[in-house]
Amino acid sequence: MEKHIKTPMTKEIIENLHAGDYVYITGTIYTARDAAHKRMYDAMLEGKEPPVDLKNAVIYYLGPTPAKEGQVIGSAGPTTSSRMDKYAPLLMEHGVSGMIGKGKRSLAVQEAMKKNTCVYFAAVGGAGALLSKCIKRAEVIAYADLGTEAIRKLEVEDLPVIVVIDSSGNNLYETAVHDYRITHGLE
């Protein structure tokens, strides 16, 4: 089903999202990938506050190319989510309720998603030029020394994503391929 939603990603919104929904996101989201996750995670373990308010926040696993003059951001597609699996459950404990990336998630992440009412979206990998057009503002707000891996606050308009794992634990990567194989006589 096609849905348009606005951040912050509240529990009410998430409970109405189901694996397979095609969703357009509008509002504020944050970028973070490997290095920023490690730094936030280490800070949290030391009892420090993360540099962004993570309550009902959506994290986009993204390290963009540099913006040219007159551009908001460069190419801006998703990176592989599984590298963030080690850190994601603790971020969810601190309020993260949406993640955008591509690829499979660990069982520990899927369990934490159910426990914390969180949703995992996939954006189309390798479509960074197209996805960059949905980003209307971008600003580095933490860990600037990490360059492309810094945390950016993005204002997005109708960013197209697909619900892959919903808060009830339904997983489109498993069901979609299985269903395709059944309907096409491949099982």
Binding site: P64, T65, K68, S75, L130
Partner: peptide
Amino acid sequence: GQLCENLEIAAKEQIPICQDT
């Protein structure tokens, strides 16, 4: 279809096809 559109935007607006260059 999105991938084809992405290639057109990349060529026309000189934005890298993928952010992982």
